[in-house]
């Protein structure tokens, strides 16, 4: 019985990871020219003012088709951790980013700066409850409080010594994506809530995590997806959980 209850918690937490993570990824994907889709308001603002705020680009990501997500890659490591690789430009060439890069080079030198800025991570899940998005300085701590209660705690960070516009970028993302009035997480949190209800019902004994199972590449215990919407991160998470559960036997 206790096993079943824990399974419910773990499944609920994990599903929330994936839905929350999905939202974050959707936002930034618009920088990828292949999948760019403009929102109506963004077009109007651009027509009127010549340009639109970066936030509007984030939001336009909502309209991405599923096929765009299939082009992304997740890398799944032992112990349940996983990374969504950068699919937007890791080195944006706008004036704000270039200024930041120049400051980084002064501080760390050319080689170390390149090492830092070329780190191929868009979003990372640290087993079991951290969801971190380094490029936009966002962190989510997903804290299970009880079998039917989960607290999602949102953080954003100011990079020490970085120019104010870099913080404004993180703040804009936080206001639209992670604040209590989020236009992005709203659907994900709603899904999470419905999953809670579904898992606590008698509706079904099994939760399917089989999407694209057997179609990922595995080398030395690291699973790399070929299709971005593979549920490899969930399978990876549950594998770690299972390992911990049987470790004491």
């Amino acid at each position: 019985m206790i096993w079943a209850r824990r399974a419910v918690v773990a499944a609920a937490i994990l599903l929330s990871f994936v839905t929350l993570a999905g939202a974050a990824e959707r936002i930034a994907a618009i920088v990828n020219k292949e999948v760019i889709l403009e929102s109506e308001v963004e077009e109007e603002v651009r027509a009127r003012n010549g340009s639109a705020p970066l936030d509007y680009h984030f939001l336009a990501g909502f309209t991405l088709p599923l096929s765009a997500f299939d082009k992304m890659t997740t890398v799944n490591y032992p112990a349940g951790h996983s990374v969504l690789e950068g699919y937007m430009s890791l080195r944006p060439q706008d004036p704000i980013s270039l200024n930041y890069e120049a400051i980084m080079k002064q501080k760390y030198g050319e080689q170390r700066t390149n090492e830092i800025l070329d780190t191929n991570i868009h979003h990372v899940i640290c087993y079991p409850v951290l969801s971190i998005q380094p490029p936009l300085q966002q962190l989510r701590a997903i804290r299970p409080l009880a079998v039917d209660q989960t607290l999602t705690e949102l953080w954003h960070f100011r990079l020490k010594g970085a120019p104010e516009p870099i913080y404004r970028r993180a703040l804009g993302y936080f206001n639209l994506v992670n604040s209590p009035s989020t236009m992005v997480n709203a659907d994900d949190l709603w899904n999470f809530r419905k999953q809670h209800e579904g898992l606590s019902s008698d509706g079904g004994e099994w939760v399917s995590l089989h999407r694209y199972a057997g179609q990922d590449d595995e080398t030395d215990g690291v699973v790399r997806t070929r299709i971005g919407t593979s549920e490899a991160p969930l399978r990876n998470y549950f594998k770690a959980w299972l390992d911990y559960m049987i470790a004491g036997n």
Partner: peptide, 8 residues
Amino acid sequence: DGEPSIFF
């Protein structure tokens, strides 16, 4: 302006 808000 420059600070986190619930709506802005």
